[in-house]
C-alpha cells in the first residue's frame, strides 16, 4: 500500500504530513526513553515484513505488521512506521519522501485505531480463543482501514 511519488496533489501531501506530524509528535511524547529500543525493533520488523512476498494463487502479497505494531506500541506506532517508511524510501525507493506523510498516515492511523478498539480487550482477556478472534479481527480491520484511507487519498488527489 505504498502510494508512489508524484501521484498525489500537493493539498493531499500537506494533509498527509499534517496528520503524520500530529501523530509522530504525540507518539514521541508518549514513548519513554527505555522503550525506544523496542519501538525500533518493531519498526525494523515492520520494514522487513513488507519485503517478504508470499505467492497466493496467481498473485502475490506481502506481510503487513500494522496490527501488531499498533497493538504493542499504541501512539508509538506513528514514529515507528514513519522511521520504517523513511528507510524504505531511502534504501529501496518504495514510496518516496514527499508522499512519506500520506503513506505513514495510511498505515499508522489504522494501527492506532486498532489499538484503541481492541487493545484493552486483547490485553485483559485470558481466554485463548477470545485473544485469537480479536487479534484476527484487529489485523483484518487494520488492513481494510489502510486500504480505505489510501483509496480516499487517491480519490481526492486531483
Amino acid at each position: 500500500m505504498h502510494i508512489s511519488e508524484g501521484v498525489l496533489s500537493s493539498q493531499i501531501l500537506i494533509a498527509g504530513y499534517a496528520g503524520t506530524c500530529i501523530g509522530v509528535g504525540f507518539g514521541l511524547k508518549k514513548i519513554q526513553d527505555y522503550k525506544i529500543v523496542r519501538t525500533a525493533l518493531l519498526s525494523s520488523a515492520f520494514f522487513l515484513a513488507s519485503l517478504v512476498n508470499i505467492r497466493i494463487g496467481p498473485g502475490s502479497t506481502h506481510l503487513s505488521f500494522i496490527a501488531p505494531v499498533g497493538l504493542i506500541l499504541g501512539w508509538g506506532a506513528f514514529p515507528a512506521i514513519f522511521a520504517a517508511l523513511l528507510l524504505q524510501a531511502i534504501l529501496f525507493h518504495f514510496g518516496g519522501f514527499f508522499v512519506l506523510g500520506a503513506n505513514t498516515f495510511t498505515m499508522a492511523f489504522p494501527a492506532l485505531a486498532v489499538n484503541l478498539i481492541f487493545g484493552k480487550i486483547i490485553r485483559k482477556s485470558e481466554k485463548k480463543f477470545t485473544v485469537m478472534t480479536f487479534s484476527f479481527l484487529a489485523g483484518a480491520l487494520a488492513v481494510i482501514m489502510g486500504a480505505a484511507i489510501a483509496g480516499i487519498f487517491l480519490y481526492f488527489h486531483r
Binding site: 509522530v24 514521541l28 514513548i31 526513553d33 525506544i36 529500543v37 519501538t39 525500533a40 525493533l41 519498526s43 525494523s44 520488523a45 520494514f47 522487513l48 514514529p79 515507528a80 514513519f82 522511521a83 520504517a84 523513511l86 528507510l87
Partner: peptide, 16 residues
C-alpha cells in the same frame, strides 16, 4: 528521539 529511533531501526533491520 526520532533520530535515535531511525538509527536503531537501521541496526534492527540487519539483526532481524
Amino acid at each position: 528521539k526520532l533520530r535515535i529511533l531511525i538509527l536503531l531501526t537501521l541496526r534492527g533491520i540487519f539483526i532481524l
